Structures are given as structure tokens and as C-alpha cells.
Amino acid sequence: MSYPIYQVDAFTSKIFGGNPAAVMPLERWLPDETMLALAIENNLSETAFFVPLPEDDEADFHIRWFTPGIEVPLCGHATLASAWVLFNKLGWDREQIRFHSKSGPLAVRQTNDGWLILDFPKFTPEEQPTPALILEALEGAPQTAFFVPNDTNYMVVLEDEAAVRAAQPDIRKLKELGNLGLIVTAPGTECDFVSRYFAPGGGIDEDPVTGSIHSVLVPYWAKRLGKKRLEARQISARGGVLRCELKGNRVDIAGQAAFYMEGSVYLP
């Protein structure tokens, strides 16, 4: 059996930037162990799989995401990449795409200038003392951190963008936390805020651009900066740009996408 596969760089307008995601449309689910094996073989931070739902369903597709280590409950860049494939390769001609996911309903719509807007849930982090392992792993970590129970991430806020760029956490110690990962953020010099994301719990030392963490970052920075529309940059080596807006208990996360390749996967 052969299955189509696409690779799209998300949150960037040019290939070799943003975050690459593999996208595999399916007619029906493959076994979980097969989807994890495909994600390992693709060796990208996420591979997205989706199947169509019945016409009378509240969503159009059921979407799932696998890292090379685990299935994750929410992923922004691979959702954006999946929407790009549907709009541009699979002939989807409606205004938006509705996905059912482990994190509830998600939607993606396309703007006239080619940006894709993710409609994602808002996550509220809980302030708490910074765990000792984070203090040991990240030089200059503050004494107060935030925990995000919805996706088991921690978040620390550093003084400025330079501190985020310079961060070199001990990945082995972060993995000992037993959670998904650590978000590091600060005010931006040419945007509202910047971030980086280290996710050893998901088998990823550093994720290039992470849409899902903006479900946490946008509410935090909207409150701190007193504004609902925010421009964000994830300042990994590849880097990415996100236009965000807080909308009640939802967050709009917009990005561009660059098509890289398509092909077929052959399974016995």
C-alpha cells in the first residue's frame, strides 16, 4: 500500500525556515505503532495524520500528531501545514477547515494574502516556584515559573531577548522533569515577545517554531502588555514569525507556509 506524504515548512515564507512538518492524509487510521514508526522515520518534530469525518459531523477531519517519541495532544505548526496541504494540494474550497483533536475543536482559515490562521484554545499557566531541576538546567532562570497543566509545559520569563537567545539549558536535566518541555520567553526588540521551546519529553531537544505554546504565551503577554494583538517570533536557529490575537477563551495564531516536497510512503 502507498500513502501520500507532504513536507511543509510552517511559520515561514521561505523553505529552510520555520518548522518542517510531515503531513499524511489517510482514509482511515493506521495502527498507532505504525504512525509512531512513520514519525520516527520522518525524523521531524511532528508528523500530522488526519482522516475525513462524516458530512454530518461537527468537524471535517480528525487530526493527530506524533513526534519521534510520543503522540502529543496539540501541535500548531503541523496543523498549519495540514491546512496548507488541504487548501493547496487536496482541493479544499471552503472558507475554513474544522479539525477534531485531543485538545478539542480546532479550525484554520486562510487570508487573502496567504496567511493561515489557527483557532486554538487559550491555556492559563499557574505561577509557582521554579523547580530545582530548571534552576540547575538553565543559568539565570528566575525563582518563579509558570506551569501549564493542559500540556505539562513549564514557562520561564527572562529579562530580555538577548537572554532568550543565549539560553543553553541542560537538556538531560530538563528531561528529568518528566513533563513535555520548557518555554523560555522575554519581551522582543522588534516584536512584542520572543520565545524558544525545549521539549525533551517529546523527544525534541529544541523545536524550531511551536504554534501550540502560543496558546500560553499570548494570554500571558496580552495581559502584561495590555494589548490583544501581538507579533511574536520564535528565535531558534530556523526562526519563525507569528501574528497572534487573544479572543476570549480562544487564541488566533497566524503564520505562513512554504511547500518543500511531496511523495509516497510504501508500507507492507
Rank of each mutant, 00 (worst) to 15 (best):
W29K: 05
F198C: 03
V265D: 03
N88S: 12
C75P: 01
G248H: 12
G69W: 09
E231C: 13
V156G: 03
S82V: 08
P129K: 10
P142N: 13
R233I: 11
V23L: 04
P4Y: 02
G178I: 09
E176M: 13
A254R: 06
V209P: 01
W92V: 10
G248Y: 12
A81G: 09
Q168N: 15
A258G: 07
K247T: 13
L267R: 11
F146R: 04
S195F: 04
L135V: 12
T130P: 06
R94L: 14
Q234D: 07
P25H: 10
N179T: 15
N42P: 10
Y197V: 00
K102L: 12
T124E: 08
P169E: 03
W65K: 07
R98N: 12
Y3M: 12
K89N: 07
A137V: 06
R196V: 04
P187C: 12
W84G: 04
E231A: 13
P129A: 09
E190T: 15
D32G: 10
L267G: 12
A107P: 02
E176Q: 14
Y220H: 12
P121M: 08
E55D: 14
V251E: 05
G201Y: 03
Q143L: 12
Y266C: 09
G255H: 06
Y266P: 00
A141T: 05
V241L: 00
P187N: 12
N179S: 14
E33Q: 14
S236M: 09
C75L: 01
P52M: 09
Y260H: 14
N112C: 05
T189W: 00
A132L: 14
V85H: 01
T111P: 09
Y154H: 13
V51R: 01
R224D: 11
I204H: 01
G140T: 11
A22D: 06
L230Y: 02
A21Q: 06
G69R: 14
L242I: 15
I213W: 04
V72Q: 06
F123T: 00
S101E: 02
C244G: 09
E46V: 07
T79V: 07
P121G: 01
F259Y: 14
E139K: 13
P125N: 07
K227E: 11
I117E: 00
L135H: 11
A254N: 08
G202K: 02
P25N: 11
T67H: 01
A83K: 01
W221V: 04
I63V: 11
L53F: 11
V156E: 03
N42W: 08
P208S: 09
M24G: 05
V251Y: 00
L30A: 01
R165C: 13
D119R: 13
D9W: 03
L230F: 10
P187G: 13
I40N: 00
I235R: 00
L86N: 01
R98E: 11
A137S: 08
L38K: 00
S2I: 14
Y260W: 15
T79C: 08
P142L: 12
P25E: 07
M1D: 14
